[in-house]
Amino acid sequence: MFTFIHCSLCVLFLMLTLRCVLWPVCRTKSRMSKNSSKVLNLKDKISGNEVDLSLCNLTEVPVRELALFPKATVVDLSCNNITSLPPEFCNLTHLVKVDLSKNQLTCLPDDLGNLSNLQHLDLYNNKLTVLPVSFSQLRSLKWLDLKDNPLEPGLAKAAGDCLDEKQCKQCATKVLQHMRAIQEEVDHAREKRLLKEKEQEKKKEAKQREREAREKEARKREKAEEKERRRKEYNAQMAALAAREQQKKKSEEKKKKNGQATDKKVVVESAPKPRRSFLSLLFKLLLLLLLGLAGVAAACQLTDLRKEAVCAPVNVAVEDGLSWARQQEVVVRQLLQNLSSAAKEFLESTQASKN
């Protein structure tokens, strides 16, 4: 029993493994076969220059397959569930007539205007509200049907009723005119926006130049201030140097003046020497005279000449002089002191006047 259960589990595990390994391959092959069937079906649906893909329950346009048949210029994609056209659809420039009526289209690609050969476009019973601006470039378009679409009022007015061939042709003409007006408005708005952006760029550049000019002026002012500061420092250094030189010069002049004053003082001090010599000579003469007189007086007093008549007046004078000298000793001393002080003051005043 245990062996049977074990074998059953092993078989189950093996089947699961094979499924996991083989399922992606089988799915890929199925997808490839499905795509191949599409191509084969597309070939089957081509009749001359027409491709009939209506009522195929398509949710997207087989753009790659259609591109393989450039001679198929008429494509019928009506009565499907297509919600949007891929951007690559705009590369099918060989298309002349396209029927997309009774689908679920909510918008068209922006480059729809690249379909330069498109003449007939049926968009009946979709969910379109607006058309791309490039729609105005469909210059070959001669027939257009936009009935039963929730179009915006301006576009709905231009599209009209489109109840017959004539009205559908008028719809193509008026819608192209309407879209060209919108294109002009868009171009004008774009030009205005570009002009505004250009003006803003100019203003930005002007502000940039103004900021650069301010920065340049600030750098220039800083350089000028730095130069002025260095100049002031240099002037201060030169002034200090000049002041030191002036002080040095004054000091030298002062020393020189002191030297000259010393020389003058020496000259002044040496100048009175002749006067002192004259006074000393005068004193010497007076001293000699006094000595002579003293010698005569001594001869007349101490020798035998005192009896002579010549010595009589001398003796009398000596006696009178001695008596007077005794009386005037103090006066003479004071007089000598006064003379000495006067002579000293005279010399000092003379020296001061010369200085």
Rank of each mutant, 00 (worst) to 15 (best):
E165I: 03
L53P: 07
E245V: 03
T262E: 08
C107W: 07
T17E: 08
C107E: 15
V316N: 09
A158M: 01
A72C: 15
L66W: 06
L339G: 01
A236M: 09
V330F: 07
R31Q: 14
G154I: 01
L115Q: 08
D76R: 00
K203C: 04
L194C: 02
N355A: 13
Q260K: 02
K203P: 04
K354E: 10
K157P: 03
K142H: 08
L121C: 00
H178E: 10
D148L: 14
C300V: 05
H120I: 06
Q137A: 12
S277L: 11
L22Q: 13
D148T: 06
S136I: 01
A342N: 02
M15P: 02
K45L: 14
N125K: 13
G113T: 04
K265I: 12
H178V: 05
A156E: 05
S349C: 11
K71I: 05
Q328G: 03
L77D: 09
C10Y: 01
V61D: 04
S353F: 01
G160L: 06
V267A: 15
L42K: 00
R275Y: 14
E345K: 13
E348R: 07
A294S: 12
K344A: 13
K97Y: 06
L68Q: 14
Y124N: 08
A181V: 10
K102F: 11
R211Q: 12
L115K: 03
V51M: 15
Q208W: 06
L53Y: 04
L347P: 05
L151W: 00
N126D: 06
A312G: 11
L108I: 10
V266Q: 10
N81T: 15
L42W: 04
K232F: 02
Q177H: 08
L123Y: 05
T129P: 07
Q200D: 07
K255A: 09
H178M: 08
S33T: 02
H120V: 09
K157S: 01
K45W: 00
Q119C: 07
L336R: 02
V21I: 15
N315F: 02
R326H: 07
P132Q: 07
F89M: 06
N103F: 04
D148K: 15
F4N: 04
D110E: 14
